[in-house]
Amino acid sequence: MKIALIGYGKMGQAIEAIALQRGHEVVLKVSIDNLEDNTIENIRKADVAIEFTGPESAYENILRCIEAGVPVVSGSTGWLDKYEAAKASCTAHNSAMLYASNFSVGVNIFFALNQKLAALMQPHPEYDVKMLEIHHTQKKDAPSGTAITLAEQILEQNKQKTKWVNHDGSNASDLVILSERIDPAPGTHVITYTSAIDDIEIRHTAHNRQGFATGAVLAAEFLQNKKGIFSMSDVLGI
């Protein structure tokens, strides 16, 4: 499989290493130093594009891949206010798109666990729920995309919480997400349910970027030759 890497920072380089190990070829690498190579013509040299950039560029990068007719896997966060527009463009161009806030196999199992726990806790309003996420200091967005996904899963089930907030507040209807930036933490997410009697806590701690990179390559392998909108749940059969 021929892969275009849109974004060649630490994550892009980790993805490249996994892709090469799995026998794929990287035909395009776009970084901050060669943005002029980020063209529809160059993207069309690939079977699948993997996009890991930032909030300011992700949406345009995804649209460019869609217009090129190349299935695109995106792990960029901070642009989801335009996600529905990207889906509409993908459908209009009969292309394929897969977005995930986190590609790690372990995190996606953690998502499923979080959904199940939130459903189990729903009849027990005596438990309050809070979240903590810890990442390295170079991470640009807060809370993390993974934390937002976890929060939205909880809000679907929890009738006492109406929205998430990224600060420690006194409003009982707010789902508090605390964000800490500490090097060299690749990513830790903790959900805690607290009552006067006891606490229930689930935690996922990443040790390095390899899990994210491997999942992104698995997603690209899945997306090749497909049409439509997909998620990591489709890739992993969760």
Rank of each mutant, 00 (worst) to 15 (best):
A119V: 07
I191P: 05
I191A: 01
S173A: 14
A213N: 01
S170A: 11
V70S: 06
F110G: 09
F103P: 15
D128K: 14
N166G: 05
L28R: 04
I32H: 10
H136Y: 13
A14P: 07
G106F: 03
H124V: 10
H189S: 07
A14L: 02
R181S: 10
Y59N: 03
I40S: 08
Q122A: 14
V72E: 00
I148R: 05
I66W: 00
H135I: 10
K2D: 06
H93F: 15
T53Y: 01
A92L: 11
L120M: 12
C90K: 00
E60Y: 13
R22L: 13
A68H: 08
E133R: 06
S76R: 05
Q160V: 09
E60L: 07
W79H: 15
V107Y: 11
S76K: 08
K140M: 07
S144H: 02
H124D: 08
I238V: 11
E152P: 13
G9F: 07
V190D: 00
F110T: 11
A92P: 00
I134R: 02
R203Q: 08
N158Y: 06
R22S: 12
Q153E: 09
A100S: 15
N102G: 10
V190G: 03
G78N: 03
N114V: 15
R181K: 15
E221L: 00
A46R: 05
I134H: 04
G9W: 06
A206V: 04
A213P: 14
G69A: 03
T205L: 09
I202G: 00
E36Y: 10
N166F: 05
L28C: 03
P55L: 00
A68P: 07
F110M: 09
E67S: 14
G7H: 07
A17G: 03
I191T: 10
N61D: 09
E180R: 15
H204A: 06
V107P: 13
K87L: 14
D198C: 14
P125S: 11
N94V: 12
G237I: 01
S144F: 01
K29R: 15
P184W: 04
K140E: 13
A196C: 09
